[in-house]
Design a protein around this nucleic acid. Sequence first.
DNA 1: AGCGCACTTTACGTTAACGTAACCGTAACG
DNA 2: CGTTACGGTTACGTTAACGTAAAGTGCGCT
Lengths: 130, 130
Amino acid sequence: MTDETLTIRLMCEQFAVTPRTLRFYEAKELLFPLRKGHARLFTRADRARMTLILRGKRFGFSLEDIRQLLDMYDPGGSNEAQLTRTFELAQKRLHQMEAQRAELDIAITDLNLQLAEGARLIAAFRSAAT
Amino acid sequence: MTDETLTIRLMCEQFAVTPRTLRFYEAKELLFPLRKGHARLFTRADRARMTLILRGKRFGFSLEDIRQLLDMYDPGGSNEAQLTRTFELAQKRLHQMEAQRAELDIAITDLNLQLAEGARLIAAFRSAAT
DNA sequence: AGCGCACTTTACGTTAACGTAACCGTAACG
DNA sequence: CGTTACGGTTACGTTAACGTAAAGTGCGCT
């Protein structure tokens, strides 16, 4: 059985975050560690969520955005209406992400052009320093 | 001559921001409007900068990050050392952006898979409702 | 002169995402 | 049995990127 539950320390190591962060995420209902006495035990599900949380953060989603996305990765709302609402929300996110990628592509192209120009300038400086 | 300089109001309209934002950007040395008396006049260069600022913001760069990037788009640091440093900074950004795009692609793929699963679930619900 | 309007500066308020300090419990170790 | 180690709960502090309110300035009009 992979009941491999982690203490807060180990969890912190695995994801390179502080205890404060994990407690904060629990408060924000992004993680739901079990309790053994008063201590937290992070489950496999929590670890899966953490991966998604960190990924979400890296491209600029807010924790609140991420919380909503996480709900979708769950077998949570088991009635059709809820499921449909969640599905539509996910589609909106997807469009946002695709738009973001499109902009990122443009920016990368721009920056590449600027880099080429920069390289040209530097080369000019060097050849001028004969 | 395209000395088409804009008042703060017009500038706000063009970029859909508030006066506070423009003043704030000036304080942070992202914009350098001229002064006619005590009033600001935004130049074509300022408008170009604004476009870049807003683009930068859209994929999560901080204003400080953006300020450094803007320096590169300038004929500003006219010595080789400065130019080279700026060039390297830009390269780092580029790598960050490419990494970000790679992750975004993964996330988009993930989300697409989840959406497919979601669609399957919803379809199941509907056929069950015979 | 008086009025209003657009613009200004100064400065305190706000939200997100934690950091950090203070204080408490308990379990193991020497 | 004291203390070190790890865990916990308040609760105030911090940074970024503005919002917002207060109070002053200049100018064009009547």
